[in-house]
Design a protein around this nucleic acid. Structure first.
Lengths: 225, 225
DNA sequence: GCGGCGATGACAGCTTGGTGACAGCTTCGC
DNA sequence: GCGAAGCTGTCACCAAGCTGTCATCGCCGC
């Protein structure tokens, strides 16, 4: 899952990016409205984290633009304690949640997760498919009851595949979800590599990553057509 | 389905062509207005993707010409962020949709799909005919409930036949849709080959590809006249 | 019955994906 | 700080399967 962090204060953006990155999200940072627009034009995000107070205008303008353009990506607004008015206004304009600065990184992570969860239409975080038991929040993965350790990227990939199970996911889309812009120079077969590693860990779970040559990958649950 | 991409920036054209190619469209690229005119004269396209800013003139001229000539092929216009006037003008002149550069390839794909869908008069992407269940977006094909894997070309062919079901599709039209100009050296019976392969996969579905000697092929749904 | 179009099985080339080994980097414990 | 462990991504080589050609056979229409 890929996030856009629209925030001009470098250390806040960095901290959020690092924390969410550890949580398995690929983060792009946009320090200005202009950057945010450029990013939004280039790819789809799972969640946008939007500071309202930006050097070249208000984040509310950006939010309004996106909603007018029919974009329903969940937006989490960051505001100063005092800016009650802005906060309410942003919610009216289609923001999904807000967080008052300064905030705790763990709370940010929890809220982002809640938004992605809501998006996926799942009431719970935890996903159980055949012998696979996956909790993205706890980053925990169990195969046939046994805990399996997986790396950040592996979990991110699993997340993408689980969210789109039954559908063929083109490789470039998985690539987009796994790596942000800053990792754009990663080789072509990085996705294949992680698919291979994930497959090993999922083997025997009844859940398989099918290859569809020239099309992409699909998560298939045994006995689920 | 065959697309014409009128775009002079080589890497943009290439990326779009690759992405849409993966999505099952055969793409021809025209870097100039002159090329675009030549292509339009040679074959019919399902959608034209038209950059307005071209080395030998404005894409708007091309659009106007085509519309005057009675050509109603859906046109998706590409414009720069700033060129609001051009965008509005193009819509007035009969463009069906526009996309601001830089754009996300997935958004392009989605819009192209929307245009082809609109053309076919279908509200939904997913098609269910007798025992056949086909979702071009997910590249998923089910026959009598069972998932059947198909290759890119097979899916492209099915797409063409489904979009024109009940109508006889001349072989050269299918050929055009399956292969762009760059594959013009492909043998004559390539279409027959893919028809045969697709037939095998569709057998028992209640949907059949009829041969009409000297005329072409038609997708027929059992008990559906 | 003949001519020609279409069907189909076999095959080879080539693109695409799989995988093991390895090196750099980060992270974490001490 | 230092060192170790493990995560990451690259490379090279191998395997798989998609693709399109060819040849042969069947079949339809005339």
């Amino acid at each position: 899952m890929r996030l856009l962090i629209v925030e001009d204060t470098a250390d806040v953006a960095e901290a959020a990016s690092a924390s969410l990155g550890r949580a398995g999200f690929a983060c792009d940072v946009a320090p200005t409205l202009a950057d945010a627009r450029a990013c939004a034009g280039l790819t789809d995000y799972g969640v946008v984290i939007l500071d309202l107070n930006l050097p070249d205008g208000s984040g509310r303008d950006f939010l309004r633009e996106r909603r007018r353009a029919g974009d329903r990506t969940p937006v989490l607004v960051l505001t100063a304690q005092s800016a009650v008015e802005d906060r309410v206004g942003a919610l009216d304009e289609g923001a999904d949640d807000y967080l008052v600065k300064p905030f705790d990184l763990r709370e940010l992570e929890a809220r982002v997760r809640a938004l992605t969860r809501r998006e996926a239409g799942r009431a719970e975080n935890r996903v159980t498919l055949a012998g696979l038991d996956f909790d993205p929040a706890a980053q925990s993965l169990r195969v046939n009851g046994a805990t399996v350790s997986a790396t950040r990227r592996e979990l991110a990939l699993l997340n993408l595949l689980v969210a789109n199970r039954g559908r063929i996911m083109p490789k470039d889309r998985l690539f987009d979800g796994l790596f942000g812009f800053e990792n754009a120079d990663v080789g072509d077969n990085a996705v294949e590599l992680y698919v291979a590693r994930l497959r090993k860990k999922l083997s025997g779970s009844g859940v398989a990553i099918e290859t569809h040559r020239g099309l992409g990958y699909r998560l298939e649950v045994a006995g689920d057509g």
